[in-house]
Simulated scan of single mutants.
Amino acid sequence: MDEVVAPVASQRIADHVRGQILAGALPPGTRIRQDDLAAELGASRLPVREALRILQTGGLVTLEANRGAWVTQLDQDDCELSYEIRERLEPLLLRRSMAHLRAADHAALEATQDEIEACTDVEEFLVLDRRLHWATYAGAERSELQAIIGRLWDTTHHYRRAFTYLAGAERRWIINAEHRLLLQAVRDGDTVEAEQVLTMHIRRTRVELRQHPEVFAPGFDASGLAG
């Protein structure tokens, strides 16, 4: 029984910590103390250790022997490289997905974009934006490609949040215009156009972040960019 329960408990803990990291409650560089986490979740140290290993595999946590665990922090070069990889891999995933999307999928994409255009909260936008993009990839078979891209999304999420604050409400129209162009190409089945729009969409974030090295400073609070 313990062999069955432990992996389930570890995954539950890993999902909890991942959620906190993506929500910004545990920013990059935050120390994760196993005893504190075990006490918070009412768990033993064994599944906590395994959960941290799961998160290490996903790139969200850095473990160092005899030192402990931290939320992974990227420097500017690491983040830029992650975005360059996304620029090359995500259009491929989109191409593999598009032929399998149906009218109901297209309608759901349009509905999500309507929600994005109506929302004013950055955290809500980040959730909806992720939902939109991954819905465009839903037609592709699960593969190592999806796993790689998912890891890149997770490890760059903090910096994507910073970009969203940097963009501000007055520049949100650019994001929405790119989304609409992407959805039109997906609906038309135009893979060349869809790939080009997606590449441009990802690249713009990368270029914008390049202009703001302060985002990569230890302890940087993305929400401080609001206003």
Results as ranks from 00 to 15, higher is better:
Met1His: 09
Asp2Thr: 04
Val5Ala: 11
Gln11Ser: 11
Ile13Ala: 07
Arg18Lys: 10
Pro28Ala: 10
Arg31Cys: 07
Arg31Asp: 12
Arg33Thr: 06
Gln34Val: 12
Ala38Asn: 11
Glu40Asp: 14
Glu40Ala: 15
Glu40Lys: 13
Glu40Ser: 15
Glu40Trp: 10
Leu41Arg: 00
Gly42Phe: 14
Ala43Gln: 15
Ala43Lys: 11
Arg45Met: 14
Leu46Ser: 04
Val48Ala: 07
Val48Gly: 05
Ala51Met: 02
Leu52His: 01
Arg53Ala: 03
Leu55Val: 07
Thr57Arg: 12
Gly58Asp: 15
Leu60Arg: 03
Val61Ala: 06
Thr62Lys: 00
Gly68His: 04
Ala69Leu: 02
Ala69His: 02
Ala69Tyr: 00
Trp70Cys: 02
Trp70Pro: 02
Thr72Asn: 06
Gln76Met: 13
Asp78Thr: 15
Leu81Ile: 14
Ile85Gln: 09
Arg86Val: 11
Glu90Thr: 02
Pro91Glu: 13
Leu94Arg: 01
Leu94Lys: 03
Arg96Gly: 04
Ser97Glu: 01
Met98Arg: 00
Ala99Ser: 00
His100Asn: 11
Ala103Ser: 14
Ala104Gln: 04
Ala107Cys: 03
Glu110Gln: 14
Ala111Arg: 14
Gln113Arg: 13
Gln113His: 13
Asp114Arg: 14
Glu115Asn: 00
Ile116Trp: 03
Ile116Val: 04
Glu117Val: 12
Ala118Ser: 15
Asp121Cys: 14
Asp121Gly: 11
Val122Lys: 00
Glu123Ser: 09
Glu123Ile: 02
Glu123Arg: 05
Phe125Val: 07
Leu126Trp: 03
Val127Asn: 08
Val127Tyr: 10
Leu128Ser: 07
Leu128Gln: 07
Asp129Ser: 09
Arg130Asn: 08
Thr136Tyr: 04
Tyr137Asp: 08
Ala140Thr: 10
Glu144Ile: 09
Leu145Trp: 04
Gln146Asp: 15
Ile149Asp: 01
Arg151Leu: 12
Arg151Glu: 10
Leu152Arg: 03
Trp153Ile: 06
Thr155Lys: 09
His157Lys: 07
His158Lys: 05
Arg160Ala: 14
Phe163Pro: 00
Thr164Leu: 08
Thr164Cys: 10
Thr164Ile: 06
Tyr165Cys: 10
Ala169Gln: 05
Glu170Gln: 10
Glu170Trp: 03
Glu170Gly: 06
Arg171Val: 13
Arg172Lys: 13
Arg172Cys: 11
Arg172Asn: 13
Glu178Gly: 06
His179Trp: 00
Leu182Met: 04
Gln184Leu: 10
Ala185Leu: 05
Arg187Cys: 00
Asp190Arg: 05
Glu195Ser: 14
Glu195Tyr: 08
Gln196Asp: 15
Gln196Thr: 12
Arg203Lys: 07
Arg203Met: 02
Val207His: 05
Gln211Ser: 07
His212Glu: 11
Val215Ile: 05
Phe216Gly: 12
Pro218Gln: 07
Gly224Cys: 08
Gly224Thr: 11
Ala226Lys: 13
Gly227Tyr: 09
